[in-house]
Design a protein around this nucleic acid. Sequence first.
DNA 1: TCAATATATGAACAATCATTCATATATTAA
DNA 2: TTAATATATGAATGATTGTTCATATATTGA
Lengths: 115, 115
Amino acid sequence: MTKAIHSHHGHEETVQLTRGLMPKEELLYDLAELYKVFGDSTRIKILFALYENEMCVCGIAELLNMTQSAISHQLKVLRQNKLVKFRREGKTIFYSLSDDHVFKILGQGLEHITE
Amino acid sequence: MTKAIHSHHGHEETVQLTRGLMPKEELLYDLAELYKVFGDSTRIKILFALYENEMCVCGIAELLNMTQSAISHQLKVLRQNKLVKFRREGKTIFYSLSDDHVFKILGQGLEHITE
DNA sequence: TCAATATATGAACAATCATTCATATATTAA
DNA sequence: TTAATATATGAATGATTGTTCATATATTGA
């Protein structure tokens, strides 16, 4: 099982997902960075909220009972990691998950903690 | 798709993995805690190393070029989250992944960052 | 029992991070 | 253009966290 891939740093590599080959230092670092994004309950809640519906910033803030500023800061992190996308409609900006892959990762994690 | 589960806090719940139902606050918190563990490159490296071989603490320290103390501290985190198990052989303690599930989670993350 | 070796752990420190507060930017309606 | 509204963002702050250092615990062989 070998795959040609594009890392976040833009160059191409080959990754073995089989036993016996430790992925490159940089790839492991990127992987940790990705999990770090999921490692905050506010961001997790935002992602789950967006799985249900596309939502505006103030909608998320209201749902999670947090300030608009806090949500905006976290949405920035999610945006920078390409986990969410957004569209503008007048004054309002609607956020949604950038792809189903994001939810798959959450599902996998849920499976683990629920044994 | 409904599953009866045991949370880390020891009581039974029901979780919907379908659109339209936000998991309980506490479950989302536990999920974030799990990802937090994966969100450090030292721990990620340890997990990948253990996927290849069962290893002793000093072996991991040597492989990652880090102090025994730093590795021990991180192994404690992995132990507390039940991601690794260990056995003693004389003075040496060998660590290994607690199950294949752990590596599945890593594989899923790798898939995401490699597009 | 004592010395040597492997591992664990508490305290301290620096670095990172989530939230808050104040304010800036962008859009719309008047 | 001005007021109102939605969102973004820089600075400050308190909390969390990874590593180091010193030391404790556990095992083995002498």
